[in-house]
């Protein structure tokens, strides 16, 4: 029996089905590990409500059926509810948030809008760790209250953490916390070389063996019923082939983790599907990577892991991703080369 969809080992997609919408760079927090650079540009530069609604219509008309809305803090926009409602009527809509502003009324509204899942970032299992990481005292308690409100209104919650030096010792406690607050999924994200995280890299980054040890310890002690999501070997996705994303200023960037590195076109003036055919986008989707890891390639169908990380460390789009145990080849992940963006 044939399975359509794989051409010479590379998955084929005529047009993307899912997209990350980086709604805003506004955020009340000041996270050290943030992939964005919130507040660096005036909020007035961001797309206005009408343009977002038009873009969502364009995405829906072109086959996007799943949108992941993140920021900054998406709920920091006054028009967040209107934009989320517009999206949720057309596509499965999930939201990433710090949850610090989610009270009972907000949670009820998100449930009514039809938000399919909310991903909440915590930077530590202890208030002291989290609050120090986000630069805002009281944030931990507010986020926990926010998660509780979401669960009361039946919204599925995933808890996310960006694994880095300040929180590595709390990883297992975070998993227990995730289960305790009613999350059914715990996502451990790696530190990506972007935004503020890039500038604080030397104080945040862990060596690969430290990361793998933390993950192994976590896997051995995962609370029952909690799904683990992680992006290390053999899950080092080179997911450019299926990813699409739009930054707060209306530019197609392929993936939120490429926001500092690529610009496939200004969607205020360029049709979205045209950006899908940008030469660099096509090149990254082809998944041609030197010395790729066979395990990760076989599980992802594409090769070489994250293009953003590979480019940040090696300065080449066809370089392997050093966060993979096979492809690392002695790269010290604690030292990010100082390359001009």
């Amino acid at each position: 029996m044939s399975t359509p969809g794989e051409v010479s080992g590379t998955p084929w997609m005529a047009r993307p089905m899912k997209l990350t919408l980086c709604l805003t760079a506004r955020c009340p927090l000041d996270c050290r590990a943030c992939y964005a650079d919130c507040g660096a540009r005036p909020a007035a530069d961001e797309l206005d409500t009408a343009t977002w609604l038009r873009l969502i219509d364009e995405l829906a008309a072109n086959g996007v059926i799943n949108v992941f809305v993140e920021g900054g803090e998406p709920l920091a926009r006054d028009d967040a509810a209107a934009i989320l409602a517009h999206a949720a009527a057309r596509m499965f809509t999930t939201l990433r948030t710090h949850a610090v502003t989610i009270d009972d009324a907000t949670a009820a509204r998100l449930a009514d809008l039809g938000i399919g899942r909310v991903y909440v970032d915590l930077m530590g299992a202890e208030a002291a760790t989290h609050d120090a990481m986000v630069g805002a005292p009281g944030s931990f308690a507010a986020a926990i209250d926010g998660i509780a409100a979401l669960r009361r209104h039946g919204v599925p919650v995933s808890l996310l953490v960006i694994l880095c030096r300040p929180n590595v010792a709390e990883l297992r406690a975070l998993a227990r916390l995730a289960a305790a607050v009613g999350a059914d999924e715990f996502g451990v994200l790696r530190l990506y070389p972007l935004g503020r995280a890039r500038r604080a890299w030397s104080t945040l980054a862990l060596a690969l063996d430290e990361q793998m040890a933390a993950l192994a310890g976590l896997a051995a002690d995962l609370p029952a019923g909690l799904r683990l999501m992680q992006s290390w070997h053999p899950n080092d996705a080179n997911c450019c082939w299926q990813n699409a994303a739009i930054d707060p200023y209306g530019h197609a960037i392929g993936c939120p983790y490429l926001r500092d590195y690529v610009d496939y076109g200004d969607l205020r003036t360029t049709p979205w599907l045209e950006t899908w055919n940008h030469p660099l986008y096509r090149r990254l989707r082809a998944g041609r990577v030197d010395g790729h890891c066979p395990d990760c390639a076989s599980s992802q169908l594409t090769r070489g892991g994250c293009r953003s990380t590979a480019y940040a460390f090696h300065g080449r789009w066809d370089a392997p991703d050093p966060f993979c145990v096979t492809m690392n080849k002695g790269t010290d992940l604690r030292v990010l080369p100082d390359r001009p963006l």
């Binding site: 399975t3 969809g5 794989e6 998955p11 089905m17 899912k18 799943n66 053999p234 899950n235 996705a237 997911c239 299926q242 076989s298 599980s299 992802q300 169908l301």
Partner: peptide, 13 residues
């Protein structure tokens, strides 16, 4: 499926 990526194609690893 080894990878439960949202849109991982069916089958394979």
């Amino acid at each position: 499926l080894a990878r439960r990526s949202v849109f991982a194609p069916p089958g394979r690893t």
